[in-house]
Computed example of a mutant assay.
Amino acid sequence: MAAQADEKESAESLLAEIQKKISDAFDIFDHESNKTVDVREVGTIIRSLGCCPSEGELHDLLADMEEEEPTGYIRYDKFLPIMTGILMERKYKPAPEDKLLKAFEVLDSDRKGHLTAEDITKYMTEEGEPFTQEELEEMLSAAVDPDKGVILYRDYASLMSVDETA
């Protein structure tokens, strides 16, 4: 019985910790301190919590969080249970470094060990779920090596991966 009580206490502790993280992240964007955030900032909040949903998945999450009549704002009491479920289930986890490297290697058909900004721009705007111009510029500013002018994807993949122990 004691083991079951410890397990329950541990689960409650984890839940409380997750909900505190969610609350802290939400509060940063709750500029008017009224338990609402601009719907356009929800993706940033979700990503700050270590989740990487696609734009389609984010759109579905927003639909679940919005009011019957969308107001342009998301209320904390709608955000919290959905985000708690996502974090408890460990959904939308970022890809591990080895998987990112394999993806870059597929794009680097000549095995040069790098990609040009032009290559990556083409792939990110013409294939799959296209990046917006803003997303592309943000990525390139972080990815392009300032000295060589190319994306040294081995270095970039390690920057993009998340340390699960943190």
Rank of each mutant, 00 (worst) to 15 (best):
A143T: 08
Y92K: 13
G72D: 07
P96D: 10
S13H: 10
E68P: 07
E135I: 01
I120V: 14
L80F: 01
T84E: 14
L107Q: 07
L61A: 02
G43A: 05
K112S: 09
E129G: 06
Q133H: 11
P53V: 02
E135F: 00
P96T: 05
E134M: 10
A25H: 02
E67F: 00
P70E: 00
T165M: 07
A117M: 04
A95I: 08
E137P: 08
P53Y: 03
L49T: 01
L62G: 09
T165E: 09
P53S: 01
E126R: 02
A142S: 14
D98Y: 04
V144G: 01
A63W: 11
Q4G: 07
T116M: 08
S109G: 04
A11C: 05
E164T: 11
E69H: 15
N34A: 02
T132M: 01
E126C: 06
S141V: 14
S48A: 10
E57I: 06
E9Y: 10
G56K: 10
L100H: 01
V39T: 13
C52F: 12
P130V: 02
D64L: 08
L62E: 05
N34V: 11
A157Q: 05
E32T: 13
V39E: 11
T44H: 09
T116D: 13
E17H: 15
E129F: 15
I45M: 05
D64Q: 11
P94K: 00
D119F: 05
T121R: 14
G113I: 04
D145C: 15
E67Q: 04
A117D: 09
V37F: 01
G72K: 10
S161A: 13
E7A: 09
K93C: 07
L101V: 04
L107T: 00
E32M: 15
L115D: 08
F131G: 01
I46T: 14
E57K: 14
P130N: 03
E67V: 07
V162I: 05
E7L: 13
D38Y: 09
D155V: 04
L115T: 14
L159T: 10
E12W: 05
L159M: 06
T36G: 06
D98A: 00
A157H: 02
E55W: 00
M88Q: 15
A63C: 12
A117S: 15
S13R: 11
T44R: 08
V150E: 03
M88T: 14
A143N: 03
H31F: 09
E55N: 14
K8Y: 07
N34L: 03
